[in-house]
């Protein structure tokens, strides 16, 4: 859908432009960045529904970038690309390894076909969020659940809390 906004980040110019073209032809509204700081500038100005980035980029730390993008755009979904290391380990393993450092919504190994990419992006976009504000809020607060403790002695608890 043309209202779905996709941010594509890759430090290889032709990879970037070919990917953008692919997504645009598929009907997405695409913005792209070749540098981390440009990507972050765009994230300040625009709202994105999906960000696509290659985690292993010689020029920048993809994991770090994704983390920072998510601080600005907590609701953005992410599709993470990576070069294959082992045909058979591929996605499952990379996914597992990467999950330890950062969570993404989908993992794809390069070189990926355009069809697959488009399919995946469509798959992760949350169409009309049904107003589940609790879930939204969770994402907005970076996934931390707020625990509610009930205190018997309010003054004591308050003191304790203030000390922290």
């Amino acid at each position: 859908m043309p209202t779905d906004r996709v941010l594509v980040v890759d430090d290889e110019p032709r990879v970037l432009s070919s990917m953008c073209r692919c997504l645009r032809l598929a009907g997405f509204r695409v913005l792209s960045a070749g540098l981390a700081r440009d990507a972050l500038t765009l994230c300040d100005a625009h709202s994105f529904d999906v960000v696509i980035l290659d985690l292993i980029m010689p020029g920048m730390d993809g994991v770090e970038l994704l983390a920072r993008i998510r601080k600005v755009q907590p609701l953005v979904r992410s599709v993470v690309l990576s070069g294959k290391i082992d045909e058979d380990l591929a996605e499952r393993d990379i996914a597992r390894k990467l999950r330890e450092s950062v969570e993404a919504d989908a993992y794809l190994s390069k070189p990926v076909s355009g069809t697959r990419l488009v399919e995946t992006v469509r798959g992760v976009i949350v169409k009309d969020p049904p107003g589940d504000w609790k879930a939204i809020a969770k994402r907005m607060s970076n996934g931390k659940d707020l625990k509610i403790k009930t205190a018997k002695d309010a003054a004591k608890e308050l003191k304790k809390f203030r000390k922290k």
Binding site: D44, H46, D128, P129
Partner: peptide, 14 residues
């Protein structure tokens, strides 16, 4: 939509 709400929030931030 909810999306409009969150996008509006982003706009305010910006």
């Amino acid at each position: 939509t909810v999306r409009d709400v969150t996008r509006a929030r982003d706009l305010i931030r910006f």
